[in-house]
Simulated scan of single mutants.
Amino acid sequence: MGEKVFAPWTDPNETPLIQFKNVTKRFGEFTAIDNQTFDIYEREFFALLGPSGCGKTTMMRMLAGFEAPSEGTILLGGQDIAPIPPNKRAVNMMFQSYALFPHLSIWENIAFGLKRDGLPKEQIAARVEEMLKLTRLEKFARRKPHQCSGGQRQRVALARSLAKAPKLLLLDEPLGALDAKLRQDTQFELMDIQEKTGTTFVIVTHDQEEAMTVASRVAVMDHGKIIQADTPARIYEMPGSVYVADFIGDVNIIEGRATPAGDGYDIAFAEGEPALHAKSDKKLQAGSTAYLAIRPEKVRISTERPDDLPNVVRGKILDIAYLGNLSTYHVRLPNGQIIKSQTANTRRLSNRPFTWEDEVWLGWTDTAAVLLEG
């Protein structure tokens, strides 16, 4: 027997920790959140992902209690949180700026909320030690924030946010201030800490890679609405719309006219080009506009025409991006469309068979492309 997969959202008997019910938030004439209903479960690492101004921060501020919904209700553990002031909620928020007290030591920073709650001294000391250990900061307890690196300050803010054992921790762009290498390390640290504490984390980010790395589910937002909330794998492999496909990772989008054929549809996309075929159980009107979303790593590039692939197009290499372990070829088709193909460079010195201006064949299987409606 394998390990039980964590997927409470698939179990109808699970009660969500957080329930948004028809929540709308307006600022004057502007609708920031547009009639949203969704659930977040206990122990989830839930990411709100989207471009600036899509409503993700407003969503988080309503959970924290800094904003109240204009319409609808938000339940936490089955209780309407609207009447509960921010400091009385079992919710804590970690800000992008970390907002540490510069004059207090790391130990005092972590103890601050516990002292304010009037807990007994021994209990505070035990909890602070526990938090220092969890965030690997034992050696830095006596330092002041300015004597710590960015990554350490980030962990202090996390330790302070978790000290009061909130049911829910909100993280607003928590890794925004860190450099790329540190961000990556910290992502795994965050996941580890979330797992150990069992606290529900909701993270706001515009960094798709971050969301896809840390989250159990990602909610992709646009104009105040969640367009799709799903596991990172499903969002990547089975996007529900062109917006989601385009927002996550690199993708080729081919627009064409759909005609039902066999186990899916033929897509006519350019004069003089053969139709492309995609397996799909979607119901589309014959002749309607449809889109094929194909990830570059699923497009095979070759100098000879491949006989074993149902979808084959010919083009000329316009550009090559060499990323060490990967090469991405930008190939222009006769109709001017650019298709990207990505190959792994497995050999140390890849004797690249392709170069600029080469005529090449691109091919993919009939399940490689996701068929999306116009």
Rank of each mutant, 00 (worst) to 15 (best):
I84W: 09
I84T: 15
I84S: 12
I84E: 10
P85A: 10
P85S: 09
P86D: 02
P86A: 09
P86N: 05
N87R: 10
N87G: 05
N87E: 12
K88W: 01
K88G: 01
R89L: 00
R89Q: 04
A90C: 04
V91G: 12
V91Y: 12
V91T: 15
V91A: 13
V91E: 14
V91N: 13
N92G: 10
N92H: 08
N92T: 15
M93G: 02
M94I: 08
M94P: 02
Q96C: 11
Q96F: 09
S97A: 14
S97R: 12
S97M: 09
S97N: 15
Y98L: 03
Y98C: 04
Y98Q: 03
A99R: 08
A99P: 06
A99D: 09
L100H: 05
L100W: 00
L100R: 04
L100Q: 06
L100V: 03
L100E: 05
F101W: 15
F101L: 12
F101C: 12
F101I: 09
F101H: 11
P102E: 04
P102G: 05
P102D: 04
P102T: 01
H103N: 15
H103R: 13
H103A: 13
H103E: 13
L104W: 10
S105D: 05
S105A: 05
S105Y: 07
S105T: 15
S105W: 08
I106R: 00
I106F: 03
I106M: 11
W107K: 09
W107G: 00
E108V: 00
E108D: 14
E108M: 03
N109G: 08
N109W: 02
I110W: 03
I110P: 00
I110L: 02
I110T: 00
A111D: 06
A111L: 05
A111M: 07
F112H: 06
G113V: 04
G113Y: 02
G113P: 06
G113F: 02
G113Q: 00
L114S: 02
L114C: 02
L114R: 00
K115F: 04
K115I: 05
K115H: 13
K115N: 14
R116G: 00
R116I: 12
R116N: 13
D117T: 04
D117S: 11
D117A: 15
G118M: 09
G118H: 07
L119V: 03
L119S: 00
P120L: 06
P120H: 08
P120C: 09
P120G: 07
P120W: 10
P120I: 07
P120S: 08
P120M: 09
K121I: 06
K121S: 14
K121W: 08
E122L: 07
E122H: 12
E122T: 11
E122F: 07
Q123W: 02
Q123Y: 04
Q123I: 08
Q123D: 13
Q123H: 10
Q123C: 11
I124K: 05
I124E: 04
I124H: 06
I124F: 02
A125Y: 13
A125K: 15
